[in-house]
């Protein structure tokens, strides 16, 4: 589904990604871990098409298409979804309002019929159950005055509505207490299927107790320095990131 080859990127003059390789197949969950500043969020942002980063080398292929050639909106319409680390607040635009536009923009792109108001509301009602989000929140200005947990739940709710092929969760666990974390993880698990894939970007192992990954990659200093299965996350938790840092400075 997703193939990242030797991806290099920088912001202004600073090199951040120094050759990332990653293969993700349908049905898989990959966790990307790493200390602060290792490039995790940069990778997530580049997948979604954020323009503050300049890709200086390598390639990203998604379902056979050159992802880097596509605008952010076309990536979303192809099925890439980014759950934002810092969900945006937009005064005057409600979740329902922009999701209706988004759902139909995606359907239009895929040559499907535009969804009428009734079917949209029905779908919305169903999906609110996935993350147990209060419908009144969805009628309010996007994320304005929402708690941290509500914002993250709203991201997963949007994911449920847009039914992406590839979901990238950028530190979705940050700022969540354990109850909110469980709700969010539970929501993601409900959406997992053999046809879609998830990349979980996280600093802590904690989230991976609830969203169990098939593969864990450790990103350090712009490169994936270790890959393994979920046990790697536990080892990291036990030994700390210094283990990775020391190992890599030694080389």
């Amino acid at each position: 589904m997703l193939s990242i080859k030797n991806l290099q990127a920088r912001v202004e003059e600073k090199e951040i990604l120094k050759g990332i390789n990653l293969e993700v197949k349908a049905g898989e969950v990959h966790a990307i871990m790493g200390p602060n500043g290792s490039g995790k969020s940069t990778l997530a942002s580049i997948l979604a098409g954020r323009e503050t980063y300049e890709v200086t080398g390598g390639s990203i292929t998604f379902e056979g298409k050159d992802l880097l050639e596509l605008s952010p909106e076309d990536r979303a319409r192809e099925g890439v979804f980014l759950a934002f680390q810092y969900p945006v607040e937009i005064p005057g635009v409600s979740t329902i309002n922009f999701l209706k536009t988004a759902v139909n923009a995606i359907r239009e792109y895929r040559g499907e019929e535009v969804m009428d108001a009734v079917s949209f509301l029905k779908m919305m009602k169903e999906k609110t159950k996935v993350v147990d989000i209060d419908e009144t929140l969805l009628k309010r200005s996007l994320n304005e005055g929402f708690s941290g947990g509500e914002k993250k739940r709203n991201e997963i709710f949007q994911m449920a509505m847009l039914e992406p092929k590839l979901a990238v969760l950028d530190e979705t666990d940050s700022g969540l207490d354990i109850d909110a974390l469980k709700i969010v993880a539970n929501g993601v698990n409900k959406l997992r299927s053999k046809n879609n894939a998830v990349i979980v970007v996280t600093h802590y192992q904690r989230l991976l107790d609830y969203i169990v990954p098939d593969y864990v990659h450790v990103l350090y200093n712009g490169r994936i320095v270790k890959s393994g299965t979920k046990e790697l996350a536990l080892e990291l938790e036990a030994k700390g990131y210094d283990w990775i840092k020391n190992e890599n400075t030694a080389v």
């Binding site: 952010p72 909106e73 979303a76 005064p91 923009a105």
Partner: peptide, 25 residues
């Protein structure tokens, strides 16, 4: 707001429509 524009585009809404949404709001 650039961040809001990027967010809306990352949800599949084309640039022109995203701008319109923000201006209407």
């Amino acid at each position: 707001d650039e961040e809001a524009l990027f967010f809306l585009r990352a949800r599949g809404i084309p640039m022109a429509q995203a701008r319109l949404l923000l201006m209407q709001a």
